[in-house]
Simulated assay, not measured.
Amino acid sequence: MFKELQSKVNAILSNADSSIENRLQAVCELLKTTVPHYDWVGFYFKNGDKEELKLGPYAGKPTDHTIIPFGKGICGQVAISNQNFVVPDVSAQDNYIACSITVKSEIVVPLFLNGQNVGQIDIDSNTPDPFTGQDERFLEFVNQNVAKIIQGYLE
């Protein structure tokens, strides 16, 4: 499944006739509708010079968490650690920000631009412990390709 998705993601991201925001939104929608255990898919980006993340394009239920301070929740921890964070059971995490009572697990993969952590892709799942190394590799692939187009988007 992920091999097929890679070419679809590249096709979306390489469509220069579409705005960066629209391309990122299309990637979120594609992942949410195609991967059965991806119930919420979104991008968070560093909010200027502030030590916080700001919600970008996403697909899924609206969230109140449009700003996340560094260190808070899974996303905020990834902003500091620069490491993938896979949470098989969100109820077992002390530093977790609940977006919905239906969420059972989460994966967050940092997005690097010129060696700097500038954001991340965040996936919530209503399925307990669904994420594998294949999810991680695929989301790293997505972020590497998003990084190629977002230089101007973040400025």
Rank of each mutant, 00 (worst) to 15 (best):
Q134W: 13
F131I: 00
L24N: 05
V87G: 00
K148E: 15
V86M: 00
Y44M: 10
G73M: 07
V35S: 03
F45L: 09
Q25C: 11
Y153H: 14
D124F: 02
P62G: 07
K72T: 13
I149L: 07
V41P: 01
A92H: 07
L31V: 05
F43G: 03
P62Y: 08
N84F: 13
E4T: 15
A79K: 05
S125R: 04
V86D: 00
Q134G: 14
E4V: 15
N95P: 04
N15S: 12
D89C: 01
W40K: 01
Q144F: 14
Q93L: 11
L5W: 06
T127D: 03
L154D: 06
Q144S: 15
F43R: 03
D89E: 09
F131T: 00
N15A: 14
S91C: 08
G71Y: 01
I121Y: 02
G115I: 06
I12G: 08
V78S: 04
F70N: 10
V142K: 06
V87N: 01
N22C: 11
N114D: 13
N114H: 11
W40P: 01
P130H: 00
Q83H: 08
N82I: 09
I121T: 04
A59N: 06
I80G: 05
G56N: 04
I97F: 03
Q151N: 14
K72P: 09
A147G: 07
G56Y: 01
N10K: 12
N145V: 10
D129L: 00
V108H: 01
Q6Y: 11
L30N: 07
R23F: 06
G76D: 01
G76H: 04
Y38L: 03
T127M: 02
L24G: 04
V78D: 03
V146Q: 09
L113F: 08
K50A: 12
E155M: 14
I12D: 07
V41Q: 02
I12P: 06
Q93Y: 07
L139E: 02
D124R: 02
V146S: 10
N82K: 13
E106R: 00
T127A: 03
G119S: 06
F43T: 03
A79Q: 09
A11L: 14
